[in-house]
Simulated assay, not measured.
Amino acid sequence: MVWWLLDDTELRLAEDALRVERERTAFLAEVSETLSGTLNVERCTEATVRLAVRHLADAAVLIAPAAGRGLPVIRSTPEGPVHGTVEADPETVPGPSEALQGVPVGDRPVPRPG
């Protein structure tokens, strides 16, 4: 009688990593396809909120750069994205002011061309 013992730990880890990477690639392809389908800012913000709720969170709020006196806000609802405006100063809350400038929180500001 012969017994073969096979350690398949590496195989399982590789299969799990491949599955995760395929899911990530599928998500990025969906985002790319959805957002590149239009140059309309309103449709892109709505699509971003929908994608976030579908893949990343239970709810989403997108704060756009200031347009006039308020901050345009798009939030998720069960019926779909809803547009609104918030009278707030992004400088009073840590994070949003950097995010609205395109700077990740905790990172050094990236020099802008020009």
Results as ranks from 00 to 15, higher is better:
residue 48 T to P: 09
residue 33 E to S: 14
residue 39 L to D: 09
residue 1 M to C: 07
residue 113 P to E: 10
residue 19 R to E: 08
residue 9 T to D: 07
residue 107 D to F: 06
residue 63 I to E: 02
residue 69 R to N: 12
residue 92 T to K: 10
residue 56 L to M: 14
residue 11 L to R: 15
residue 111 P to D: 06
residue 50 R to T: 15
residue 7 D to P: 00
residue 114 G to D: 11
residue 8 D to L: 14
residue 33 E to G: 08
residue 54 R to A: 15
residue 1 M to P: 12
residue 36 S to W: 09
residue 5 L to S: 14
residue 51 L to W: 11
residue 85 T to H: 05
residue 107 D to Y: 05
residue 18 L to W: 00
residue 108 R to A: 12
residue 6 L to V: 15
residue 47 A to R: 11
residue 51 L to F: 14
residue 48 T to C: 15
residue 57 A to M: 06
residue 18 L to Q: 00
residue 105 V to Q: 07
residue 58 D to Q: 13
residue 62 L to A: 15
residue 75 R to Q: 12
residue 56 L to S: 09
residue 38 T to W: 08
residue 60 A to L: 08
residue 81 P to D: 05
residue 63 I to H: 03
residue 48 T to Y: 13
residue 68 G to T: 01
residue 33 E to N: 10
residue 50 R to P: 04
residue 73 V to Q: 04
residue 86 V to M: 13
residue 55 H to T: 09
residue 71 L to R: 04
residue 37 G to K: 09
residue 69 R to K: 14
residue 47 A to F: 08
residue 86 V to R: 06
residue 99 A to D: 06
residue 41 V to E: 10
residue 47 A to P: 02
residue 63 I to F: 13
residue 55 H to M: 03
residue 110 V to Y: 06
residue 66 A to S: 12
residue 49 V to G: 01
residue 2 V to I: 14
residue 59 A to D: 06
residue 106 G to F: 06
residue 49 V to W: 00
residue 57 A to N: 05
residue 83 H to I: 07
residue 6 L to D: 14
residue 100 L to V: 09
residue 64 A to E: 07
residue 100 L to R: 03
residue 7 D to Y: 05
residue 14 A to D: 02
residue 52 A to W: 11
residue 92 T to G: 04
residue 42 E to T: 15
residue 12 R to P: 01
residue 95 G to E: 03
residue 28 L to N: 03
residue 111 P to G: 07
residue 11 L to W: 10
residue 20 V to G: 01
residue 19 R to V: 12
residue 30 E to M: 05
residue 112 R to H: 06
residue 74 I to K: 07
residue 79 E to C: 02
residue 70 G to C: 12
residue 110 V to M: 08
residue 39 L to Y: 13
residue 52 A to C: 15
residue 79 E to A: 10
residue 26 A to E: 00
residue 106 G to D: 05
residue 28 L to K: 01
residue 113 P to A: 12
residue 12 R to I: 15
residue 60 A to M: 06
residue 59 A to T: 09
residue 76 S to K: 02
residue 80 G to Y: 02
residue 14 A to K: 02
residue 57 A to W: 04
residue 16 D to S: 13
residue 85 T to M: 10
residue 85 T to C: 07
residue 78 P to Q: 05
residue 12 R to G: 02
residue 113 P to K: 10
residue 59 A to W: 08
residue 8 D to V: 15
residue 55 H to A: 03
residue 56 L to D: 09
residue 98 E to A: 10
residue 40 N to P: 05
residue 27 F to L: 04
residue 76 S to G: 05
residue 81 P to E: 05
residue 62 L to C: 11
residue 10 E to L: 15
residue 31 V to G: 01
residue 91 E to D: 11
residue 36 S to Y: 12
residue 75 R to T: 14
residue 57 A to K: 07
residue 21 E to F: 02
residue 59 A to P: 01
residue 13 L to T: 11
residue 108 R to P: 02
residue 34 T to K: 13
residue 91 E to N: 08
residue 24 R to Y: 00
residue 77 T to L: 02
residue 46 E to W: 13
residue 15 E to H: 04
residue 30 E to A: 11
residue 88 A to F: 04
residue 110 V to C: 05
residue 73 V to S: 08
residue 105 V to K: 06
residue 92 T to I: 13
residue 90 P to Q: 09
residue 30 E to K: 12
residue 88 A to L: 11
